[in-house]
Design a protein around this nucleic acid. Structure first.
Lengths: 158, 158
DNA sequence: TGACATTGTTAGGTTATCCTACTATATTGG
DNA sequence: CCAATATAGTAGGATAACCTAACAATGTCA
């Protein structure tokens, strides 16, 4: 990523970190089945300290992306939920590409998807989605499918 | 990108920014044909101010990635050159994938490659390289080639 | 019910990167 | 050759993200 991407941070800009926190909140909700997310859970998930989470939550509240009761639960606003879902969608598409097409280990695919999900342009994401659609059309009959590529990878190793 | 990737910045860690500067220096050398690169050129290329460049050059000198005469030219050390070339190589592989497989415009492909080049794992890069090798094996005879996917993209649009 | 553990918050630092405003040097054209 | 212009560098500051240490609220269970 370019380090100069953050130069023009207008008030309304959503940073990568903010997206990460929103996504984490969504994931925790999904895991616990409860829409009340706690600071500690977020800290654990993102591997940061609780004060870091508190600071970011404040920031997200200012941007009206989450609500937060003092000493209480964090919940996403409508806008926050939408953004979290978009990020998550990007994440999944990329993770599947990395795993199914490039044949990366689940763990590596997961990590790399985390990095790509914030920085890629909408156009690129669109294309990854289109590629997935294309791949899902019928069996691996010899078009742009991961199977053929993964076979090549295996052969190449020996 | 995860914002928490920079938490463990040991002295020897090379940041995305550092990579960007090294890459820019390499590009300017290639463009001018001259290994003497000036602060202004780097500033222009990376769209930052000259003081920012001076600050980063200092940092790169400390890390023995470039040499710099006061009020003079910037040149890469052996280590700096190696890193710059690696980053450039990643950049090219990714750019070609985005353009040739996903069919993105040259400009968008360029931008997205810039973002991906620093963050992707070595394993992912390896696979992008392997994919390129695979794609270069003969014509688009129906394996993991961009041509078929791009045809699909065109048909889908209508 | 009240002491202790857990969780949330505040205060105050650190680091990396960028900026603006200003000063210092170098180069070049008259 | 030297003054004007362009280029390089310094000083000082902003911001976004992180951290540790210390304190405050909550909640649980003997």
């Amino acid at each position: 990523m370019s380090p100069r991407k953050s130069r023009h941070n207008k008030k309304e800009e959503i940073t990568e970190s903010m997206e990460d926190y929103l996504e984490a909140i969504l994931e925790i909700e999904a895991e616990t089945g409860c829409p009340e997310v706690r600071v500690s859970d977020i800290a654990r998930k993102l591997k940061v300290t609780r004060p870091s989470v508190v600071g970011m939550i404040k920031h997200l509240v200012e941007h009206e992306l989450v609500d937060h009761d003092h000493y209480g639960a964090v919940t996403k606003t409508e806008r926050g939920r939408k953004i979290a879902q978009e990020v998550m969608k990007r994440h999944m598409v990329l993770r599947r590409f990395l795993e199914e097409v490039l044949g990366l280990d689940a763990e590596v695919a997961e990590e790399d998807a985390c990095k790509m999900e914030h920085t890629l342009s909408d156009k690129a994401i669109e294309r990854f989605i289109a590629l997935e659609e294309f791949r899902s059309m019928g069996p691996d009959d010899g078009r742009l499918k991961g199977e053929s590529f993964r076979k090549y990878l295996k052969e190449r190793k020996s």
